[in-house]
């Protein structure tokens, strides 16, 4: 018989970023904001009018719009615009690096616990439960306080806070995948557990984990700023948005711009990441596809 069924022409998905943007408005809005902040951070050495730590004692607390100080100056007469541009660097690093590193670790641990089960599952998942039991803020504060302040240690503590949720999300996806017939089919084909994790499990659990990580980026901006605000993150005089809010605390009622501007910057970047994260989630979730 050897019937050859006709092959219907199928439209293949083509990578067209522009169509993607117009169809998913939240991706467009989110990437515009994030791109702007990234450019600001990268071009800070070129664009910023001053050195971020350059003090001008005579220009202390200049208001927004003063000549030479487009967005005013803080108590030490440092230019706000300059410090906001430089401060974007740590905010971006805090939003992106701990998430990426914890996502990689979470994928590995979740895939091992979910697919191999048994002892690895008990050890990994119960271990994660212990870390999960601690409030994340408290854990981040404890780790930062133990390791000492600084950008690297702040990112390390955020990574530790993020590993349990990343592992759990991956684990749940993997436990569902393990029951799928195509995983049994791979076993029937003669693949080892290691081969199955790499060829069947990970490619199919990547999208949900990335979507989850993307949805957390906005929260991480706020979270990291909070740690710096209480003095456990970026140390003075280096510019950081959370740190800057703290600097303006004492003059909040008289000169609100010193705290409000970095607060606004945090808000805008967090909103940008949230738009982007929502868009990425919708895009990666097969149920949302038309």
């Amino acid at each position: 018989m050897a019937v050859t069924p006709e092959i219907a022409p199928v439209e293949r998905p083509v990578w067209r970023p522009w169509a993607l943007m117009t169809r998913h408005k939240s991706i467009a809005a989110g990437s515009a904001i994030v791109l702007l902040v990234v450019l600001m951070a990268l071009l800070a050495p070129v664009l910023s009018p001053y050195d971020p730590n350059e003090v001008h004692p005579l220009d202390r607390l200049k208001p927004i719009g003063s000549p030479g100080y487009l967005l005013g100056a803080d108590q030490q007469g440092r230019d706000m615009l300059t410090r906001l541009m430089w401060g974007a660097r740590s905010s971006l690093a805090i939003a992106v690096l701990p998430l990426s590193i914890s996502a990689i670790i979470g994928l590995a641990l979740g895939a091992i616990a979910g697919y191999l089960g048994r002892l690895s599952e008990t050890l990994i998942m119960r271990g994660m439960d212990v870390v999960f039991g601690l409030p994340p803020i408290l854990l981040a504060i404890a780790v930062s306080a133990t390791l000492g302040p600084g950008l690297v240690n702040l990112m390390l503590s955020l990574t530790i806070v993020l590993i349990p949720p990343m592992t759990r999300v991956t684990y749940q996806v993997v436990v569902g995948l393990k029951e799928q017939a195509f995983v049994e089919a791979a076993r029937a084909a003669g693949a080892s557990s290691f081969q199955i994790i790499f060829s069947q499990i990970l490619p199919n659990s990547l999208a949900p984990t990335i979507a989850y990580a993307a949805s957390l980026a906005g929260a991480m901006v706020v979270f990291g700023a909070g740690i710096s605000f209480i003095g456990l993150g970026i140390q003075p005089p280096d510019p950081d948005w959370g740190r800057m809010i703290n600097d303006g605390r004492e003059v909040l009622d008289l000169k609100p711009h010193v705290s409000t501007l970095p607060g606004l910057a945090i808000f805008v970047l967090a909103a940008g990441f949230n738009f982007l994260g929502d868009g990425v989630r919708d895009l990666l979730d097969p149920r949302m596809r038309q």
Partner: peptide, 29 residues
């Protein structure tokens, strides 16, 4: 000994091309 499964939807990895699925037993062995 090999097996053919009941569910033709679930038994193929949705992210692998047909060719890759068929080549899979050849590669892993």
């Amino acid at each position: 000994a090999q097996i053919v499964f009941q569910d033709p939807f679930g038994s193929l990895n949705p992210r692998m091309t047909v060719g890759a699925s068929i080549a899979y037993p050849l590669r892993v062995n």
